[in-house]
Design a protein around this nucleic acid. Structure first.
Lengths: 354, 354
DNA sequence: TTGTAAGCGTTATCAC
DNA sequence: GTGATAACGCTTACAA
């Protein structure tokens, strides 16, 4: 039956001690000396009774919910196919587990973001927040720090005094574009990963422009499109590029997922990658090496970034020190076969995931 | 500064009413008549003060956390590339938002599952649970229902008296395999989506066998492999199949993600899909239509399943009626180009996601 | 070393 | 209609 719940009171009574002692023992408070005997007794009793502390009561009394929130600023349909978010989720799950915390997920429509996550924070449902994919003009973040709520951003926001973990998007995009240029391409198109209202896409576009500039190549707006995080957008934008009639033989797509759609559009028209057009992606999500052809891309250590973000957040929470830090993780170009430069033949897909 | 938090007490004082009244108004309790005047005053005051109820206190007093848990029985590295889980996540996020609830995510290693989610439930951190991907031998579930905790399973567990939402995996697999057979294939291999310790893979394998049987084709164990949810596993198992030397010209892969890996292995050896081997997948995740070639697969309405599971759970929670129901959603075969039967030429990828 | 008692911020049951 | 007053289950000074 759904028997009445066991409370710390019950444990105390059964063990013949007070609730305080039970609490002390179970929370491993070291500032108090408790005989090993009592300690064992309490633990055993709690175990026998199947005692599980009530989370709400614990949170109320201790002012800590032992839960952290992951807020993703995306429209719900983006979640479905966004492999990059998965990597973030995975990193979160790992860290959170390691620290015995819980994870609450929230997605906010890019429009009225602040409202939602502010609520989450203010209701004290969570002790801190990891934010991913916010827009450049998001003002909610400042409110968050003003209220002293621990927050770490995955990505970066030029103006804010907030902890961030990011890669150097500009430099990475530069590297990707330069790769294409070094291969001899003069007409390089670009499809960003998302609207320029987000920080990363803007930075990546900037890197693309700089690479063009330093190679003495002109920047042609007609060769640039903005993706929207998902496969479809890549498909559409590539078609738009193709239909514009402006010639190009290479394209830098600032997201692997978007690139998949773009390549599909190319192939549907009988165009071959890389023979007719070379493409380089961005993110290095797991499926890239299994694509046809395997995609040359920029590796972004998403899981490590996320774990780092988590660690940072957790230390913010426990130390109370919210001073901003900007952590930048390294990226690297992973050459596969979508640009024609076929690397060594047999090493592909050979290393186990574990 | 991090000013002191506003409590219902503060609102009451500022509005010149009692805490009870504040609570009544804000929670829209209809069993009590409150003057419209007072009502407005309270609402306005709360708003002006920026009052947000403390979630822990609310949960403690009301015995409801307004949070539901999503438990995914997968190893953490599976999350990364499992497009199917994303569809589930998306469905969850939608429903949960619609009802003003929160979502807590937990993943459990297939081994000691019960422990983890039992804890989540017993600590009352959540009001109910959605379970995805549990093994056939999971015993935790029975404990859950015995304790009266609302649970809905996405998938099915033959033995349990629990609410489930699933597709008819056996029938769908039968349909997929039969499609291959009707195309004239006599030697059809199979790679399951995961180990047979999980329910769905076992059922799908069964459907495959039945299709073979009713076509009078022999079941050859050497043509069967078990995937493990991710792309890599498809790649490896296909290689294993290829290396076994047993001939086959078609393969039913019980997961699109696994199929991607399998196709990649085929193509890496210079084999063409569908010319050399036809393949049909399972799930119809978003990327399938963008694969090269576009994958013929079984459509599983994952989002709707999840939303339905959520609705069911929510009504369990509010009604207290936990009587088991088994909901089965329809599947359908989506013919694309990976089996050689090229469908109509231009309709592909044309419908917007929204 | 252990126990007492005062919160933590709500909700909910009553009288008024 | 509205306002005291108990719970709710736990943490944590402080006292013994």
């Amino acid at each position: 039956m759904s028997g009445k719940r066991v409370t710390s009171q019950d444990v105390a009574k059964a063990a013949g001690v007070s609730r305080t002692t039970v609490s002390m023992v179970l929370n491993n408070v070291k500032s108090v000396q408790i005989s090993d005997e009592t300690r064992q007794l309490v633990i055993k009793t709690a175990d026998d009774l199947g005692y599980v502390p009530n989370a709400a009561a614990q949170a109320l009394a201790s002012q800590r919910s032992q839960t952290i929130g992951l807020v993703m600023a995306r429209q719900s349909h983006h979640i479905i196919a966004d492999a990059f978010l998965n990597m973030i989720l995975d990193g979160m799950l790992r860290s959170v587990h390691k620290h015995g915390l819980r994870l609450m997920i929230e997605i906010v429509e890019p429009k009225h973001q602040q409202e939602t996550y502010m609520h989450l924070a203010r209701s004290k449902h969570i002790d801190g927040l990891i934010l991913a994919g916010v827009r450049q003009d998001d003002e909610g973040i400042d409110t968050l720090i003003r209220e002293g709520i621990p927050v770490v951003l995955i990505g970066s926001l030029p103006e804010s005094k907030i902890c961030t973990v990011d890669v150097d998007n500009r430099a990475a995009a530069y590297m990707a574009t330069a790769h294409l240029i070094h291969l001899g391409h003069k007409q390089v198109a670009c499809i960003t990963n998302a609207s320029l209202e987000f920080a990363a896409p803007a930075q990546r576009l900037e890197g693309y422009r700089q690479a063009l500039a330093s190679a003495g190549l002109p920047y042609d707006e007609r060769l640039v499109r903005c993706g929207d995080y998902d496969i479809q957008s890549g498909y559409w934008q590539m078609n738009s590029l193709l239909e514009s009639g402006v010639a190009f033989r290479a394209v830098f797509v600032a997201s692997d997922v978007v690139a998949l759609g773009a390549i599909s559009a190319l192939q549907e028209r009988g165009l071959s990658v890389p023979r007719d057009v070379a493409v380089v992606g961005f993110d290095d999500v797991p499926m890239t090496r299994f694509m046809n052809p395997p995609l040359t891309t920029i590796n972004v250590p998403a899981q490590q970034m996320t774990e780092l973000a988590c660690e940072t957040l957790i230390s913010q929470i426990s130390s109370g020190d919210l001073s901003p830090r900007r952590l930048v993780m390294p990226t690297e170009l992973v050459v596969r076969e979508s640009c024609g430069a076929k690397p060594e033949s047999m090493s592909r897909k050979s290393n186990p995931t574990s």
